[in-house]
Design a protein around this nucleic acid. Sequence first.
DNA 1: AATTGTGAACCTCTTCACAGCT
DNA 2: AGCTGTGAAGAGGTTCACAATT
Lengths: 222, 222
Amino acid sequence: MKAAYGEMASGRFGQKISDATVGRLSRYFRTLKYLEERGVDTVSSEELARRNNITSAQVRKDLSFFGAFGRRGLGYNVRELKLNISHILGLDKEWHLALVGVGNIGLALLNFKQFQEQNFHFALLLDSDPRKIGTHLVGLEVKNLENLTVEVKKAHVDIAVIAVPVEAAQKVADALVAAGLRAILNFAPISLFVPQDVTVRNENMVIDIEHLSFSLTQANTK
Amino acid sequence: MKAAYGEMASGRFGQKISDATVGRLSRYFRTLKYLEERGVDTVSSEELARRNNITSAQVRKDLSFFGAFGRRGLGYNVRELKLNISHILGLDKEWHLALVGVGNIGLALLNFKQFQEQNFHFALLLDSDPRKIGTHLVGLEVKNLENLTVEVKKAHVDIAVIAVPVEAAQKVADALVAAGLRAILNFAPISLFVPQDVTVRNENMVIDIEHLSFSLTQANTK
DNA sequence: AATTGTGAACCTCTTCACAGCT
DNA sequence: AGCTGTGAAGAGGTTCACAATT
């Protein structure tokens, strides 16, 4: 979700694009990749909807914010629509990531295949633990967190991943923003305060598992 | 998010409780824990809101679905409200988790402190890789995925965590549902089809990072 | 005086339904 | 005939504003 007084991105006529729509575009993209790999070259909004548990009107409305990509009576060309969504989401570029906090979660992310497959590459590792600084992981040297500003510039970082303990998260976010970064993936279980031109996405597994315990609890209550 | 033809849980007067409200209850809970640890014993909806980047009306509305926990003119008793939310979310029970897929992500989850701290404990590990079956991790033996039904019963599993490759995810979900499970945390980047009484929460880091590349891309477009 | 609890207003997102193309 | 693209309607979620209570 978007954090602190965030601002939404806009579509082709300047509308605000909702987080929900952006999330679904990612899903359509994955579906289209799947279909393309299997040699399918045309798909209807109906099929894209079915494969994602939503309605076909939702699919068409989402796409309509960015253009008219289909052909009436026929549907969408799989390859073409995939390229269009890829461009909308910025997946046709290569992105440089900084990992701040080389702990338990951080290590798992370094080895997370799906990031690499989608052109998201770690270009910088930062930590404050003297025992970690200077060691090498996936071909990268762990740098001192104190030199964040300089290292972020050197590595041409676009997106930062915060994987430090909760107590340090806001301070790290402040430093990242000061260093000019405008996109943060936050794994710390806290609401970060950032300026409105910075986008934060929170990855909070505890909230999701608590949602499940809520569901089970309420089901028994009925 | 809720998957396939999902059904929402209901509040004290039978209203539907939105995912957003449940997510915020988790956040209030964490804020209340933080305040309690620091000896604070009263908090206003205004302060809970400020600490979570939302409005005080939102806080009061969320809580009102479940009861009247505050005192007008005074605010909320921190300890009392924390206990109430804990009960609503089912955090006053101990939950048994099954981890299906002991790979990269799975291993990180086993060592994820925040699950243990919140009474979510792994009670069963399943994998289909013969080299992994029979080995021990965090004091648990990795069991054969083929024996899912029996092992889920034996370990009294409440919640399953799917951390298998995307190709296997739906099959695993089907088996989990057949074994009687009603709550799934899904790390596979796919929309799972499950009956309406089963709650699925998707943990999709690729969608979140693509959201960030979208934000950066749109910002440059302006 | 302060702050909750909540109906009503408001705003946003989803779905309907059909005109418009192919 | 079939399927998209979209304005309008509908549903759902958030915020306002104020009566109720301490």
